[in-house]
Design a protein around this nucleic acid. Sequence first.
DNA 1: AGTTGTGTTGAAGA
DNA 2: ATCTTCAACACAAC
Length: 292
Amino acid sequence: MPELPEVETVARELNKKVSQKTIQKIQSDHPKMIKGLSLESLKRQIYKKKILKVLRRGKNLLLELENQRTIWVHLKMTGHFIYLPSKNTLKKEKAIQQDRFNTYIHFIFYLTDGSQMLLSDLRKFARIRLLKGKAEEIIKNPPRFGMDKLGTEPLSREFTPQELRKILQKKKKAIKPALMDQESIAGIGNIYASEILFIAGVNPLKKSNALSAKEVKKIHIAIKKVLLKAIKLKGTSTSDFRNTNGKKGGFGSELKVYGKTGKKCPKCGKLIFRIKQAQRSTFYCATCQKAS
DNA sequence: AGTTGTGTTGAAGA
DNA sequence: ATCTTCAACACAAC
């Protein structure tokens, strides 16, 4: 489930924990997760290279190295990074391993100070690439494998209500799948799309281009509010997402509608519905999020 | 016990 | 072009 708040949390934590550290070696039991080059080639190119910084773009993670190379990681559905400090007590490691979602380790990055960066991924959907150039250059001038089509960053200054209006006017889809379209806005996934629309009081079935200026304004406020709060609480862990210390994020208890089918709406007390939109579950309150 | 659903997204098919 | 369906994979719930 890593969406923008989860990936942002990982980027911030890794920035604190591994930037300015040097990669000694890597190990993988599933090199298929690497795209575009072999495990051997990746090993050669990152050997003894320092990690300068870690950035996020949409749901993509970028680890910039000192040699004009950047490790790109997409966590997809079930990937997450765990950081093990060098002076790791056995007790602490045991505590991390007690959680089975921390035990699907398919990549180990050994750093020269003895610490480790692990990639755990139950379903093995996560993908790794090695890109040429610095992270900022890649963001500005993205390669054409997928990152090239990313839309605006919802927490950036350019993402104004006017900008959102412009984006939504062009789309004929319902607002809920439109919010999840990475080519328009980068980083919103299935959980936060439902939560945002509940906070905005907008029906998920309403067509994007039929929204009033007032509704767009409400959605804009809700996007910023929900994403910022989720980042503050280090993300949502409804099942397998974990932070780099192996622990769950804190936004799970803040969820108003996601996964709440048949439960009472926190605002009006009526029942929460689940419907399907573009093959994904949408959760909403039909009373607080009127279709009209 | 087989079927269905899960936070993502790219590729293939229509 | 643009839309829908499927596949990558593992597991839980029904």
